[in-house]
């Protein structure tokens, strides 16, 4: 590392090596927090399960794979056994298979809800923070109105108003979620805006659009990413709650919340019906929380 002697040129190798080094550094920081590794392992397992569910699940048709969920009334309410690891439900369907397929739904809910929330919230926060003044004021006050309604109540009313279905549940959750992203982004933009490199970007002659996308957005992504990871769990939880209340996915869809709700009627005798989907919810929320904490630690270190 010499300050003075410029070398002739660089190869793509060195650029590649640098990227690999960047990656190693990130992995090192991430591994500093063992919980985040556990979280990542849990989430990765769920993703793998979601992808390979048709092959792992012993009775894919019970979960509605390739049509309506099958019914086998002769096998109803069998307790957990080698044949049915998590037992069967009132229609004789294999709960293990249904929980595995439920992973697909839950992840889909999390991804769709957050994608919707982020794509509304982040632009609102960016514009409000960067432009400021009356425009920023107006946007943030609108955001505050949404924030002032308790999220579950708003989600409930939206799903009731729109008919109970999974799509409407996701819509409802996204509607209560975006204001948090708007507010987070707004605050981050305000602090990044004070950095000299934003002023420098203007001093170079860059347009506002360019400044926002090149200099501001990349520097507010870290906290947004952390929040997304933490929120994945909550979004799944809220979707499950809506399902539990009968406002989300409708039976016989293998949605965890709906399953817990259905199984409730058969407690405590057929305890396995509610327990295993409940455990799945618990695990995935826990996994996303651990992962989010790990990411936050990682980004915190990076800032220093």
């Amino acid at each position: 590392m010499s300050d003075t002697e410029p070398t002739v040129d660089d190869s793509t190798d060195s650029a590649l090596a640098r990227r690999i080094d960047d990656l190693n550094r990130i992995v090192y920081r991430f591994r500093q927090n063992p919980m985040s590794v556990v979280g990542l392992a849990i989430i990765l397992s769920f993703v793998l399960i979601a992808v390979f569910a048709p092959w792992i699940a012993p009775y894919p048709s019970d979960a509605g794979h390739g049509g309506e969920p099958a019914v086998h009334f002769d096998q109803k309410f069998e307790s957990p056994s080698a044949d049915h690891l998590f037992g069967t439900d009132q229609a004789g369907r294999d709960i293990f298979s249904r929980v595995l397929f439920g992973t697909r739904l839950s992840l889909k809910i999390g991804v769709v809800v957050l994608a919707a929330a982020v794509s509304i919230g982040v632009p609102v926060g960016l514009v409000a923070g960067y432009v400021g003044g009356g425009v920023g004021m107006t946007l943030m006050r609108i955001t505050d109105v949404f924030l002032s309604v308790p999220p579950l109540v708003l989600a409930l009313s939206v799903s009731v108003a729109l008919d109970s279905s999974l799509t409407n549940a996701m819509l409802a959750i996204a509607a209560v979620w975006w204001p948090w992203y708007a507010r987070l982004t707004f605050g981050e933009v305000l602090s990044v805006k004070k950095e000299t490199y934003v002023e420098a970007s203007r001093g170079i002659g860059a347009t506002s659009f360019r400044t926002i996308f090149r200099d501001i957005l990349p520097n507010v992504l870290a906290p947004i990413t952390v929040k997304m990871s933490l929120d994945m769990g909550y979004a799944i939880l809220v979707a499950a709650a809506l399902g539990f209340l009968g406002l989300g996915a409708q039976p016989p869809t293998p949605e965890w919340g709906t399953m817990v709700s259905q199984g409730r009627d058969y407690l405590p005798g057929q305890w396995w019906y509610s327990t295993f989907p409940g455990l799945a919810i618990f695990l995935i929320v826990l996994g996303f929380n651990f992962l989010g904490d790990g990411l936050r630690d990682m980004f915190d270190v990076e800032v220093q």
């Binding site: 950095e195 000299t196 490199y197 002023e199 420098a200 970007s201 001093g203 170079i204 002659g205 860059a206 347009t207 360019r210 090149r214 200099d215 990349p218 520097n219």
Partner: peptide, 28 residues
């Protein structure tokens, strides 16, 4: 053009040096 006091804050930490220097050329 302006050269600022603290180079640690006048360069965007998430962009590579090459991109930072090329920025005015891109802009204009």
């Amino acid at each position: 053009q302006v050269v600022y006091q603290d180079p640690s804050s006048s360069l965007n930490p998430r962009r590579r040096i090459g991109n930072i220097i090329r920025e005015p050329l891109d802009v204009h």
